[in-house]
């Protein structure tokens, strides 16, 4: 579903009051990131779309239908907006089992769809357990499956993976991509994690001080300095060790830590936690197939 919106809202945060303003147009089937530091209004934006927070003025249109319009006094209640919302803290119903959480999300019970979702997220064996006995990653899967159970027109993910360890995060990112390929639901992801945005999204909308400051595809943002490199990776600096004339950087690319030596007089100094772009020029890559996509998709 296509989203068109233009909203204004006064926000009260720890740093004071500021006004938030955004005009956006998100195409049907896109997977978009709302990117930026905490407290800039990314989550508020998502909540405005879902109807959990009211904008002060403006409009929200989804698939040609007006969900909110301050001029005409239209404000569709959250329950009538067909969104799948994944909360940062999961917000699973503790009194219901995994399966009941999914069933509760459906207006009419669609057993087949529930079974399919449980299968996709590897939850079939856990379906009768309560959320309290599941791990963070498992709970996040339940939250995703529940958000999809009512077959939403939009999937809104509010920093869904921020509480998980790197490996679990990567697995779930793959699952989100798989879901997106499968159903093509327009998806918005709030995130402040660069590699995640890089991996999942084809468009990054950057927020700063209550405004959209950048709206591009992730490659353009990360490869700001034009390079002729053919292979590029976004990495996170884990460790910096000084050794004589060189610094040894331990970098995390995807799930693999890699050690790279850089000159200690390199003009940019790196600190653990920094994001880095690795470009390799003279390179003779060997490509091996790990799994066959065609077979996987042919089965669906």
């Amino acid at each position: 579903m296509q989203i068109e919106l233009s909203v204004k809202k006064k926000l009260f945060t720890a740093t004071g009051e500021f006004s938030f303003k955004a005009d956006l147009n998100i195409g049907s089937g896109e997977i978009v990131a709302f990117f930026g530091p905490s407290g800039v209004g990314k989550t508020t934006m998502l909540r405005i779309i879902a109807g959990l927070t009211d904008a002060d003025e403006g409009f929200v249109k989804v698939g040609g239908q007006t969900w909110f319009d301050s001029k005409d006094g239209i404000n569709l209640p959250a329950r009538k907006r067909k969104v799948g919302f994944v909360f940062q803290d999961y917000a699973l119903f503790p009194n219901m089992s995994v399966r009941e959480n999914l069933r509760f999300a459906q207006p009419r019970v669609d057993k087949k769809h529930i079974d399919e979702l449980l299968e996709i997220f590897g939850l079939s064996n856990l379906q009768h357990r309560k959320p309290a006995v599941l791990s963070g990653g498992q709970n996040q899967r339940v939250a995703l499956a529940r958000a999809l159970a009512r077959k939403p027109e939009l999937l809104l993910l509010d920093e869904p993976l921020s509480a998980l360890d790197l490996e679990m995060r990567s697995t779930l990112q793959d699952e989100i991509l798989h879901i997106h390929r499968l159903w093509g639901i327009t998806t918005i992801l709030v995130s402040h994690d660069l590699p995640e945005v890089f991996k999942l999204c084809n468009r990054v909308i950057t927020f700063k001080d209550g405004r959209v400051t950048d709206d591009r595809n992730p490659y353009e943002i990360f490869a700001r300095n034009k390079t002729s490199g053919k292979l590029q990776f976004v990495a996170e600096v884990l460790k910096v060790e000084k050794e004589d004339v060189v610094n040894i950087l331990t970098l995390l690319i995807g799930n693999s830590p890699v050690k790279i030596a850089v000159c200690s007089n390199h003009q940019e100094s790196f600190l653990p936690g920094d994001k880095a772009l690795i470009i390799s020029k003279a390179f003779n890559p060997i490509i091996q197939k790990l799994n066959s996509k065609e077979k996987e998709e042919g089965g669906n």
């Binding site: 329950r79 907006r81 917000a91 999300a105 207006p107």
Partner: peptide, 11 residues
């Protein structure tokens, strides 16, 4: 957020 979750699930 449980109440908000129920609202986004159409309840």
């Amino acid at each position: 957020s449980l109440i908000e979750a129920a609202a986004t699930l159409g309840k």
